[in-house]
Each structure stands twice: as C-alpha cells, then as structure tokens.
Design a protein around this nucleic acid. Structure first.
Length: 480
RNA sequence: GGUCUCGUAGUAUAGCGGUUAGUACAUCGGGUUUUCAUCCCGACAAUGCGGGUUCGACUCCCGCCGAGAUCACCA
C-alpha cells in the first residue's frame, strides 16, 4: 500500500465533542495502516469564533485516545507552521499566482450590493450565482478587499472513497471567496493550499463538504494540482431526531467521558465501529486491530446514531478485558482518582483487592465512588434494610438476631480467615441452620455492607478482614 | 426551491439474485448457592411504498414517500 499522508484539521472553537473525534480516528487509521503520516493542523482563520485554550483541549483529546500525530503543534515538522493564522504569507503567495493568471480577482463590491443581487435572484426564482454578477473591471487588489476565484462553469466527475462515483453540472460552481477582507483565507482556499504544501494524500472530512467538492476540484485544476483521495464521512446522529450530533444535544466532549471513567480503548473502539465494520462479527477491537482491518470502502454511507448505552457496554467489556489480560494491577493503575475520598487512608494493596472483587460490576470507573464506600467506611446501620428485605421479612426479629449471632459465633471461631475457609464456614452454617442461601447470605451481606448489592459473600468477608467483619456483624445484631 | 446523498429489527450493522434474512447493544424470560453485575442459554424484533426486469429480488432499473447535506467574507 502507498504511504498515505492524512490530517485532522479542526477549528479551535471549543472542545471537540465525540461527534467530531471520529474524523480524527479514521485519518489516523489510514495513516498508520499504510505506514504514512498523520498531520494535525489547526484551522484558526475565523478570528471571531476562536476560543483560547481550544487547541490544548484538542491535543489532550487526541493524546488520551492514543492518536499521535507526526507533524503539527508540539511536534513540529517540515511544513511548519501548523496554525493557519501563521501561514498568511503562504496563502498570499498562492493567491498571487491566480491573480497573475487571471483566475482570481479582487472584488470591490459592497456587501449591500451582493445582498441586492441575491434578493433579485430569489424574486426571479433563479439560483444565485455570484459569477453572473462578476465586476467587469476588477481593480488591482489592495488590503481590505476580498479576493474571489474566477471559476469556469463546467461538469465535474470524481470518486469519493465512501460515496462512490459523483457527477455534477456547472450550476454548482461559483466564484468563491479565497481571501476575506480581513486578509485571512477562507477554509475553502486555505485547506487546498495547506494540503498541497503538506503533501496530504487523503482528504477526510464530514459529508457537509461533499457539495462544495466541485469548487475544490476547480481549484486543484487551476493550480495544476493532483487530486487527493476524497473521503466524505457521514455524520454521527444525535440520540433522538435526525440531526447530526452536536453540543446542543448535550454531546459531551471526549474528555468528559474520560473524567467519568470511560477507557480510551473503549471510546476508540466504539467510535471507530460506529458506521464502519470489517464484515466480520468482531465487536471488540484494539487500536492495532483497527489499524490492521480498517478500510475506507467499508465506511457506511449514511449517518449512524450515537448510542451511549453501547459505548458503556463496550467500556465494561474493556474493563474486564484489561483485568483478565493485564491483571488487577494494570486495571488499578487506570482507576487513580476514581475512588471515594475515604479510600485514600487505606494501603494501595487493599484498594487493589477491593477492585479485583468488584471490577466486573463496573460500567465506568467512576462507579467505584458509589460502589465501594463500605469497604472504606463503616456503613450506617439501617435495620429496615434487613427486616424489609424480600427474603428476610418473613422471619421475626428475634429469629434474625439469633441467626446473625449464630453466624457471628461460627465466624469468630474461624482461625484462618481466607476466602476458601470462609466459604466452608458459610456452607456449614447453611447446613446447621437449615436456612436457604438467599436467607442466610442476604442477612450477612446486608449486615456487612448496608448496600444494595455487593460481591460474593466470602470475598467481601475476606477483603473486609476478620476484625472489621465481626465488628460490623455485632453492631448489626445489636441493632435488630 | 436547485443540486447531491441516504433508506435491513428500537439502535449499530452483515448480506452483494436463491439464506429458516446472520451478529451485537437494548428489551423480556431462564440458569450459575444471597443481592448487583459478569458469564451462559432462550425469546421478541427488520428489508419504507409502488411498479418493472427475472423462473426467482433486500439485492438490478424506474417512480413515489421519507430522512439528511449544501446553496456564507463559518469551517
């Protein structure tokens, strides 16, 4: 495969929400698959929408997901600078070529005049094409004047890697603005220049650019540039409605998911497989597997709906996978910052042990905060949880107290306190008391944790330790 | 309105003229000595509509309907 040079070229207008990060993932996969390069370019030509700090947010997101770039901010590269706002001279140089060859012109027409033309067309119900109102004798360009492309109406055919063969007539071509009156280039112009200068082979972007493609084709032609591979990425749709996912739908930033305890592996996996599949029934992919099996022609060509439930399911899968394949310690390293405050006072070994008995219940790492508190702090005794429990409510309070005391006695007698021996004691208790597991175990479980759920009883007892376990059971027995 | 794109279960998708239309999430049952979860088993559930072409159409063609994108000195 030819080495591909791809780029992710976001505008620093705020955080990038998950609907957008997929357009960073696919270029990355293409670049890595071919052994080529991935470029990060910041398209900051709109000074009004520019948001301070947005570039750092973008960089953070990419780094978190493990999408490293070979050229761009921080790492530099042969085509520096990678901020469009610092490349103004380059754009002027390119536009000058067009000015010289008569393929671009300075446009002195005031905005009001343009509005007038547009309204006139609306009234006459004909499409508004600026090229029909081109100034006859454009002046020599001077700062403060926009520069337009002088288009040649004609038909264009091209192949979009996702959408297939495309064809359009001359009616879609117009004299687009190349340089704005503030001296900054438009996206339409700047990305052509930058992609050419940076050797980009695959232009991957959202489908919203599909209809402007003929204008880009005209520009490539005017410059004598070879067309890159054009790739239109369908939108990710909001959970409801048929609109593309956006911040208004509450689309979170990738970093918010990170802060909730979604693993980057899961996020990458989910997003990559939203609207793409390799034809097999595989669901869980590592980054390496994605790089290996990704292909542009298997990208779906209709929008895909964002489904957070599936993301969370996938995150659970990844949590278990890391635990199973890399061990408790590896998963623990990912949980720093997600524990309840009280956990800090306990040794790390203890937290690892807690993690290893509850990890299969986690959907997101922040679940640790609510699910593990009773391992670090004595829970408040709530007798109602015992007497109203569906398995226990048929027993009298005296009976419950007696059952608990019997259990305490047997457990106290146990010298070697470990998961296996505890299970033996519990089994013996079952036999001795003639109770069902649902009854006996529920009672002990609640007396220990006063939580809606907890891990297997012997593991909970073992982790809590002999002293704490017995103290809690006694406390509960006294309260009944 | 012009131009372009899309249309398989609630969701994401497989399929590429002949299948009991497969898989995953979700939902609903059941199982694994308590709960929650994991895991396992099972159930429900789809080719937008109408015409062709063909022995045969989810698949090819046309029309309709529905959805989306775009028509900026925003990207």
């Amino acid at each position: 495969m030819e080495k591909a040079t791809t780029r992710f070229a976001p505008s620093p207008t705020g955080y990038i929400h998950i609907g957008n990060v997929r357009s960073a993932i696919y270029p990355y996969l293409v670049a890595r698959q071919s052994g080529g390069k991935m470029i990060l370019r910041i398209e900051d030509t709109d000074r009004e929408r520019y948001v301070e700090g947005a570039t750092e947010l973008i960089e953070d997101t990419l780094k978190w997901l493990g999408l490293d770039w070979d050229e761009g901010p921080i790492v530099g590269g042969p085509s520096e600078p990678y901020f469009q706002s610092e490349r103004l001279g380059i754009y002027m140089k390119w536009v000058q070529k067009l000015l010289d060859s008569g393929r671009a012109y300075a446009d002195p027409t005031p905005a009001e005049k343009i509005d007038e033309y547009r309204k006139k067309c609306e009234q006459e119900k004909v499409p508004f094409l600026y090229r029909n109102f081109r100034p006859e004798n454009p002046p020599k360009w001077e700062p403060g004047m926009p520069i337009r492309f002088k288009t040649e109406p004609k038909e264009y055919s091209w192949t979009d890697a996702v959408m297939g063969d495309m064809h359009t007539g001359p009616e879609v071509l117009d004299d687009i603005i190349l340089i704005k009156k503030d001296g900054y280039p438009t996206y339409n112009f700047a990305h052509i220049v930058d992609d050419a200068e940076m050797g980009v082979t695959h232009v991957m972007r959202g489908v919203e650019y599909l209809s402007s493609t003929p204008n880009y084709l005209a520009l490539y032609e005017a410059f004598g540039l070879e067309r890159p591979v054009l790739v239109s990425l369908p939108h990710i749709l909001a959970p409801t409605g048929n609109k593309k996912l956006g911040k208004r739908d509450g689309a979170k930033s990738a970093t918010e998911y990170r802060d909730d305890g979604v693993l980057p592996e899961a996020m990458l996996n989910y997003l990559a497989c939203l609207g793409w599949n390799d034809g097999t029934e595989q669901e869980i992919y590592t980054k390496e597997e994605l790089i290996k099996s990704f292909s542009l022609d298997r990208i779906q060509n209709s929008g895909a709906r964002y489904d957070e439930t599936k993301l969370l399911w996938m995150n659970g899968q990844w949590i278990r996978r890391i635990f199973d394949e890399q061990g408790a310690r590896a998963l623990y390293d990912r949980t720093i910052g997600f524990w309840p405050a009280e956990a800090e006072e306990f040794p790390e070994e203890y937290r690892v042990k807690v993690l290893s008995i509850i990890y299969d219940r986690l959907k997101v790492l922040s679940d640790l905060k609510t699910m593990t508190t009773y391992f670090f702090k004595d829970p408040e005794v709530d007798v109602n949880m015992i007497v109203e429990n569906k398995f226990l409510k048929k027993m009298s309070e005296a009976e419950l107290e007696d059952l608990l005391k019997t259990s305490i006695r047997e457990l106290t007698a146990l010298e070697d306190w470990n998961a296996d021996s505890l299970q033996e004691v519990l089994n013996n208790l079952l036999e001795k008391t003639g109770k069902k597991p649902a009854e006996l175990f529920s009672l002990i479980r609640i007396a220990l944790s006063f939580a809606p759920f907890s891990p297997a009883l012997n593991l909970t007892l073992d982790t809590l330790g002999r002293e704490t376990s017995l103290a809690r059971l006694n406390r509960a027995a006294a309260a009944i």
